[in-house]
Nucleic acid binder design. Structure first.
Lengths: 254, 254
DNA sequence: ATTGACCTTCACGTTGCGTAAAGGTGTATA
DNA sequence: TATACACCTTTACGCAACGTGAAGGTCAAT
């Protein structure tokens, strides 16, 4: 049986380039070459190629395969064992690498969360300090020490996820409120939704909820200039609107 | 602190070529370049290089390292985990390869020893059969059945190493004998050495040694044409010479 | 004669540098 | 000041095992 280069490549499952390359480095030569220059391979070449591919699958370098196949005196058993040793060394190296990468991942993860934790903790503390500095005295006067302390404590004990949820809720309150403000009606569904969101937001900081406290806070939003500015910033009257919505929500007003 | 390319290479433990290559592929650029064209690196570059080498040790490709270091938004954790996955895949591949090589070694060894064993066993059996066919009757007449059977049994139980040792000894007997034959004196040191080697050779086939049996065998080498031809083949008179040497060695002659 | 599949050689690209070659620069010393 | 010597520069080939064209010739069938 005779094969053209492509036929041999197909039965061997390799490319014609590979066959030409093998010829180039002297591993397999065609049985003969036609006058047209076409390579013609015979059965012997098929067998040889089989051997080559076998050793290649075992990860031998082509130069070594060439040596093995070219000189029958070549100690194949020795070559196999040496190759085996080399592969074991390679695996050792690889294991070391993997272990190092794993260590790095653990370390980075540790440091990341550490860093983030630190940042987060620092952020929360700063928030509380700022609250204290800004509103401390007055709030402690208006609300019981207990409420404030619990609020701060809760803040400090919040996980990052909880914190982010609280922030998200806060933003939702703001946006819903802005939208509801357009209706002009603190009793409207949207305004009541804003009030509800505000309650949810509040419970993230206050341990428990009471209509009275909620209503009281709402009133404070109007009474205290600093809070009022925060809400009125974009739309004057928003603080008052929120207070009314909350009062309705809390059932102290209709 | 400013560094020339070689100084930086030295503190980093790499070559200047490597630094220039890193510059070529856009990983590290010198802080500035002097009018002479000399590259000058600063502290920032030292730090950057440190990062590069760190990732390189973890087996990252330079292109990936570049991405990691160039864009701070790059998800390093993800890159590490992907890399980790790739390394695990690589190890799996390697394990498979090693297992295949091991199987091949076992197979080849198995086949080799099997083949050799088979060859060897067959060879031994043929030897005995031949012995029986050639000399059987007569030898069984001259020596006891017991001696013959024991000899054959011993032959069959010989390991390949023992067998090869016996062959080797046999060859040594022949060569030493040929050399000793030149002296013309069966009592010479060399002839006695040949006799001793012959005894050693003999004990490989006979379980135990006795001067009498040795002397008897020696006599047979002369009396039996077939044995005599074997020894006299290269030098006529060798069989007789060996017999005399053995008789002296065994102490039955002086 | 033309198509379309197949063949040829030549040659560049891949990865991470090693290793020259050919020639300019910096600095210490005779 | 000349010179030696260490250091610098750019350019470019080499490595392993092919992949991937490009440019052009061959074969078999229509």
């Amino acid at each position: 049986m005779e094969y053209t280069i492509q036929k041999l490549a197909r039965i061997a499952g390799i490319s014609t380039r590979t066959l030409r390359y093998y010829e180039e480095i002297g591993i397999i030569k065609p049985a003969r070459i036609k006058s047209s220059g076409y390579r013609i391979y015979g059965q012997a070449e098929v067998n040889c190629l089989q051997q080559v591919l076998f050793y290649k699958e075992l990860g031998f370098k082509l130069e070594v395969i060439k040596e093995i196949l070219m000189s029958p005196s070549f100690n194949e058993a020795k070559a196999l064992k040496e190759h085996h040793e080399k592969l074991l060394d390679k695996r050792k190296q690889l294991d070391l690498l993997i272990s190092n990468v794993e260590k790095t991942i653990a370390l980075k993860e540790g440091r990341m969360t550490m860093t983030d934790q630190e940042k987060f903790e620092g952020f929360k503390k700063k928030l509380i300090e700022e609250n204290e500095r800004k509103y401390g005295k007055e709030i402690r006067e208006k609300y019981s020490e207990d409420t404030i302390n619990k609020s701060n404590e809760k803040l400090l004990n919040m996980t990052q996820e909880e914190y982010e949820e609280a922030i998200r809720l806060g933003n939702e309150v703001t946006s819903t409120l802005a939208e509801a403000f357009q209706t002009g009606d603190p009793g409207s569904d949207l305004a009541q939704k804003a009030a509800d969101l505000h309650r949810q937001w509040l419970t993230h900081f206050w341990g428990r909820y009471s209509k009275e406290a909620h209503a009281g806070l709402a009133q404070m939003y109007v009474d205290d200039e600093r809070f009022r500015v925060y809400y009125d910033e974009k739309q004057p009257g928003t603080a008052e609107f929120l207070r009314d919505a909350i009062l309705i929500y809390a059932g102290v007003k209709k």
